[in-house]
Design a protein around this nucleic acid. Structure first.
Ligand SMILES: [Zn+2]
Length: 412
DNA sequence: ATTGCCGGGGT
DNA sequence: ACCCCGGCAAT
């Protein structure tokens, strides 16, 4: 782990007025990281090194932006973890109304003095080794009894040290899905991720990290020519906000490539309690009234049921292979037309060209209502890490997405 | 073409 | 357990 400080100097002149001149402390993870994690990814080693550095830098930027915009009593440093959720809740609410947002930082450059010193310390999260990708990671284990406010917010959950085994907990153990009844109903957890530009007088909100980076690059940094100039150190100032699909619409007046956003009626917002143990299936539906016109309710980021696919068996192996041929047929029950597939006996030669022989009767018809199996997973609606962060930010993806498994961060 | 992710492989 | 990727369906 090495530190270097450098001066922000490649900003253009007008920009330097807008943002306080400051020094940056950027830590890269050369030795430690590359030694372990990188060795495995030999094929990708090159770009990865860059990417790593870059994203760290990027995260640092975020921290800096945040830190430079608020005055927090200095006594606060150490216990920030404890009331993190309160702080963040307030913080996000603030961030939604005013552009720059806030957070008590570990390092706080003095903004008024242009000299802008910083103390050298800042061991990045030595106590809480893992990153801050989720609030339940290091802190919540301390107080399982006190329920945190169910409605909280999570903006830029970005402060993590790269590499690390942080991702293991990153989507920590929530196991607390509200209404997960017998039915395979998927949670209505629809939330949107937005990236908001933090430059002054620009509250631009885009839907992808790549998008906002591009925006900042072109609009604020003036780098028009180079489209994907991704050297290690760029100064992005943006934050990530998550909001429910309903109650969007405010604040986001100028968003450009935002997806249409279904105009669903206020389906009760899912509410994940932060209780560590999930108790039984007793639906303690804490369904609170959807705050009528409240600010976009940012959701907590608990989700993260254990590993991949907590959903009941929806996927029958080999079913999909035969769909186009004669062996499958679709039945429409209530709402969604589900397609059942007959179980083929001999996968190799089902339905040859001319032979309409097919004595195979579909026994599936007999078991209508529960039909425990059959349909393929309807393909999660909504953007996942890959789309949201883009290929170039692969190390921001959740673990599952990196493994090409079902995303754990954005659950449908 | 891109995205999500299951299944299966490697360590 | 962690990590990766071929391949497929859906988009
Ligand atoms: Zn993901």
């Amino acid at each position: 782990m090495t530190f270097h400080a450098f001066q922000q100097e490649d900003v253009k002149s007008d920009i330097s007025r807008k943002l306080p001149d400051q020094q940056f402390l950027l830590f890269t993870t050369k030795e430690e990281d590359l030694k372990t994690a990188e060795t495995k990814k030999l094929n990708r080693a090159h770009e990865h090194e860059k990417e790593n550095t870059r994203s760290v830098c990027l995260l640092e930027q975020k921290r800096k932006v945040v830190s430079s915009n608020i005055d927090v009593p200095p006594a606060r440093k150490s216990l920030e973890e404890l009331d993190m959720d309160k702080v963040t809740a307030a913080m996000v609410l603030t961030s939604l109304s005013t552009s720059p947002l806030v957070r008590s930082p570990p390092v706080r450059p003095n903004e008024s003095l242009n000299g802008s010193w910083k103390e050298g310390g800042f061991v990045p999260s030595s106590t809480s080794s893992s990153g801050y990708w989720s609030w339940n990671a290091p802190s919540d284990q301390s107080n399982p009894s006190t329920p945190s406010p169910p409605l909280s917010a999570d903006s830029f959950k970005a402060f993590r040290t790269p590499s690390q085994a942080d991702d293991g907990i990153d989507e920590g153990e929530a196991s607390n899905l509200l209404f997960d009844e017998p039915i395979p109903r998927k949670r209505k957890n629809s939330m949107k991720v937005m990236f908001k530009c933090l430059w002054k007088n620009c509250g631009k909100v885009l839907s992808t990290a790549a998008g906002i980076q591009k925006h900042i690059r072109t609009v604020h940094l003036g780098r028009v020519g180079e489209s994907d100039y991704s050297d290690g150190e760029e100064d992005f100032y943006y934050t990530e906000i998550r909001l429910n699909t309903d109650s969007v619409a405010d604040g986001l007046s100028s968003l450009s490539p935002v997806s249409p956003s279904l105009a669903s009626p206020p389906s009760f917002p899912t509410q994940d309690t932060i209780r560590p143990e999930t108790s039984c299936a007793k639906s303690e539906t804490k369904v609170m009234t959807p705050l009528s016109r409240s600010a976009p309710t940012n959701l907590y980021l608990v989700h993260t049921d254990h590993a991949y696919q907590a959903t009941p068996p929806v996927n029958i192996p080999g079913s999909a292979k035969f769909t186009p041929n004669g062996s499958s047929f679709s039945i429409s029950w209530q709402s969604p037309p589900v397609t059942f597939t007959g179980i083929p006996v001999s996968p190799t030669h089902n339905r040859a060209a001319g032979s309409g022989e097919q004595k195979q009767t579909h026994t599936v018809l007999s078991s209508p209502p529960r039909a425990a199996f059959g349909l393929r997973k309807p393909r999660g609606e909504g953007k996942k890490c890959r789309k949201v962060y883009g290929m170039e930010n692969r190390d921001m993806w959740c673990t599952a997405c990196r493994w090409k498994k079902a995303c754990q961060r954005f659950i449908d």
